[in-house]
Amino acid sequence: MANSVLYKNPILFAVVVTVVVLIGTVVTLFYPMMTAEMHPKLEGLKPYTPLELAGKDVYQQEGCIGCHTQTVRPLKAEVLRYGEYSKAGEFAYDQPFLWGSKRTGPDLARIGGKYPDAWHQMHFEDPQSFFAESNMPKYGWLKNNKLNPSDVEAHMKALGFPYKPDEITALNGKSELDALVAYMQVIGTAVKKPAAQTE
């Protein structure tokens, strides 16, 4: 077995290894990619507005997925804590998906509309004034970073999201913190949710 030509010809070996690693890849990755079940979209789901997209960019820039997930599992306690479990069709405009893998902080899949804008502004500035034992970093400094409307417009174009010119001009003077709050408020709102019972 070990004396076969396979172990003497590196090119043949590489070709065989490539085929071997591609089998699982084709079945679990390329095949589903070509089916409709991997591209679902809820009826109520809308593309991000320029301000929301800018906020989503900030979410990525600050590495928020390091501590927050955006997917509620269909488990009893999870639905009680966060709200309706996540649906595949909610994420059609998320490139990439931002489900995360660690909950140092709570899941955010149903954060949209849960608190008023002012709550988020104040919480980002000083999380410990809301929850004394919170370990979240302060993000008030994002107020000092003004959005660049032409960058945001380029991002909207890259994703092919529709927008009106006045939505771009409205970004003038807005900060990264404003954008982040706008993004918080739209997360998970395509699904009607029953109120969660506790935090």
């Binding site: 679902p40 489900w99 380029a154 890259a158």
Partner: peptide, 22 residues
């Protein structure tokens, strides 16, 4: 990915598909 400037891009894949690829 889809470049959207020199230092910014968006994943070519969206939602559940993006999750599966990642």
């Amino acid at each position: 990915s889809i470049p959207a400037g020199l230092f910014k891009s968006y994943h070519l894949f969206a939602g559940v598909n993006s999750a599966n690829v990642e």
